[in-house]
Amino acid sequence: MKSAPDRRTPRWRAWLLLTPMIAWLVLFVVAPTAILLVYSFCERDEVGRVVFTFSLENYRRVFDPIYLRIFARSVGYAGLTTVICILAGYPVAYCIGRAREEWRHRLLLLLMVPCWTSFLIRTYAWITILKEEGLLNGLIRLVAPTATGFDLMYTPTAVVIGLVYAYLPFMILPIYGSVEKLDGALIEAAHDLGAGPLRVFSSVIIPLTLPGIAAGTLLVFVPAVGMFAITDLMGGARVPLIGNVIQNQFLVARDWPFGAALGAVFMGLFALTYWILLRLGAREEDPA
């Protein structure tokens, strides 16, 4: 007779089922990361081929104040984008989540429809809107012929507009997931116990939807830090963000080892942040 715990240890069949996922991870996560790490300690030759001689020069360069400032600026842009996405996305997600069943899917569909168009085309559409002789200023001049209009294109504001536009759905969807699961009885209970609308929102609704906000924050912040297309197209490639610098190392400067070192440090920073967040989360759940 077999004992119960024995049945819980995975057998070869279970491993077999996991094989595709493990193969996927090894092929597309572990192997590229390993290549990145190896390259980051190499040097380049005249035309940009990687030469396998051990060097720490790339890492020394990463911690040059220029690149640290670029790192900080990228985090700033991504942070601002995330905050705006939360402020703008939360009410939308809440309304969709609390809407009548048959409406919810239609509203979600409206959110998805723009994503069926290529991301680049949607970014170019923003250029048409924001350019000096564009739709926005045309509208302003129509209403107030004497107004000068905005000079938005190729400014940091344009970059943030582009980033918020691109990543807003990734904030709304996870929050929607949390809101949909929200138990109406808890809200009613809070009301019955004398909490005002503000109190209900801050002490009941927000904590219950926090997992959605956290997931949305990760989904928006991480890709926004590394984004380079929007800064090029809408920011006029004037002020480099870390994504631009890395892309530049691979495609223009032909300095793959340095690009790899930047990428490796970038990943390290994320791993560290994620680990700290996990620790904080664990402490909150278990104050002892």
Binding site: R44, I66, R238, V239, P240, A253, D255
Partner: peptide, 19 residues
């Protein structure tokens, strides 16, 4: 210009970031 191309790229990245 060989390796000087990398120096040029670095100079420009540097100056763009300084704004």
């Amino acid at each position: 210009i060989g390796k000087a191309a990398a120096d040029i790229d670095r100079l420009v990245t540097d100056l763009k970031s300084a704004r």
